[in-house]
Amino acid sequence: MVICWDDPVNLMDYVTHVFQKVFGWPKGKAEYHMRQVHETGKSVLIRESLEKAEHYVHQLQRYSLHATMERDH
């Protein structure tokens, strides 16, 4: 699964925009995950195969968001 972690530097609108762009989500879903990151410290963005998860983490890191992969238990 792909996790995005909170930090106090990324603009909230910017994070929403990146989620929309990387995952193709509608604005409401992107805002929901952005708020979850902001309020709880992290959000599980997607559960995917290792290959796809790597792709998404790379995309998020290109935008300098703090994203990691973890095995889903």
């Binding site: 930090d7 530097v9 990324n10 910017y14 925009h17 990146v18 290109r62 935008y63 300098s64």
Partner: peptide
């Protein structure tokens, strides 16, 4: 450019 700017911001 978003990627470039945010690299500068976060870095």
């Amino acid at each position: 450019l978003f990627q470039v700017l945010n690299d500068i911001r976060v870095g």
